[in-house]
């Protein structure tokens, strides 16, 4: 089977400003491919190129085996698209909007529309101008999913959704996967992508910094380790930790003996890579406490962003990534 999306050397120039500097990636059919990057990285531009809303300045694109411009209406019928900035008409209801899109995209099962609306908790008969941002987003998702497309292209799909609806969204993604659909989605925060995506491309300033699996990111990510060991001293713990691969930034604090226990050592460190070696090493100690945190993928991504711009002092908008994490 051919790949669902193949992008080679994609460049896009608006006037003199080039916003995509030669992207190369491929999306395997039946997988979820996430693109993450700060605002302005080129995620939306890439998606618009896939849908032939804008045309590449250079490079080739193949979507479901066809050039988006050649594929035309027949190709777009096989795609569901959620724009990053969803604009809806004011003087209409969700139902009328959905009916219109069904009329131009064809073969929509009205029962499925009702089912999706119910699952998302969306009232289709309300005036769109009275809908909250989250409800508008639900309407956007509904029109993308309603014709059961082979390919879903979703730009920041969970923005504005509360956690329950996000769960519902993940279930919808899961069902799309079950019927063999491919999903291409973007986000400015990794936490949104990591639950669903098989592969993740990190985009920064119009270039792909890396393409990786969430698993690989997780492995590369750094965990915080904290433990307290009794009956030993800082020197011994330090020597022990020095032999464990991936352990870094060790901080040790020795407490004086209290009561019947001897001296104890409180240790903090970071760990990247596998945990096995550390666990084996720690087995030699008499631990009274151990905390091994979930790897912070946001940190991992930020590290990658930073690696993408070694010459720059200003780290590229980590704040926006952070902000996103809060309301996610």
């Amino acid at each position: 089977m051919t790949q669902a999306i193949v992008v080679e050397g994609l460049r896009k120039r608006f006037g003199r400003r080039e916003v995509l500097h030669g992207l190369d990636f491929a999306v395997e059919p039946g997988t979820v491919f996430g693109v993450i990057g700060p605002n302005g990285a080129g995620k939306t531009t890439t998606m618009r190129c896939l849908l032939d809303i804008i045309r590449p300045s250079a490079g080739t694109i193949s979507v479901l085996g066809q050039d988006p411009q050649q594929g035309g209406t027949a190709l777009r019928r096989r795609i569901g698209y959620l724009p990053g900035e969803l604009h809806l008409e004011n003087r209409t209801t969700g139902r009328r909007m959905v009916e219109h899109f069904a009329a131009i995209s064809g073969s929509v099962d009205p029962r499925y529309v009702e089912e999706l609306a119910e699952r998302l908790g969306l009232d289709l008969d309300r005036q769109t101008r009275k809908l909250s941002k989250g409800n508008k987003q639900k309407l956007g998702l509904l029109q993308a999913f309603m014709h059961r497309p082979e390919l879903l292209i979703l730009d920041e799909p969970t923005s504005g959704l509360d956690p329950l609806v996000q769960q519902q969204f993940h279930a919808m993604i899961g069902e799309a996967m079950d019927r063999g659909a491919t999903v291409f989605l973007s986000s400015h925060v990794l936490s949104e992508v990591q639950l669903t995506a098989d592969a993740v491309a990190i985009l920064r300033d119009g270039e792909i910094v890396t393409i990786s699996t969430v698993e690989a990111l997780r492995t590369a990510a750094v965990r915080q380790v904290k433990f307290t060991a009794a009956g030993t001293d800082a020197h011994d713990v330090g020597t022990l930790l020095a032999r464990v691969p991936g352990v870094d930034s060790v901080v040790l604090r020795e407490s004086p003996p209290s009561g019947h226990t001897g001296k104890s050592v409180e240790a903090r460190a970071t760990l990247s890579g596998q945990v096995q070696a550390l666990v084996q090493a720690l087995a030699h100690l008499n631990l009274s406490e151990l905390v091994l945190e979930e790897p912070d993928l946001e940190e991992a991504v930020l590290t990658l962003y930073a690696k993408g711009s070694p010459s720059r002092e200003d780290t590229p908008k980590p704040s926006s990534v952070r902000e996103g994490a809060h309301h996610a």
Partner: peptide, 14 residues
């Protein structure tokens, strides 16, 4: 300009 055309064109129309 109002952003509506993008979504219309993403559907099955020329």
């Amino acid at each position: 300009e109002s952003g509506l055309l993008e979504l219309t064109l993403a559907h099955s129309v020329t």
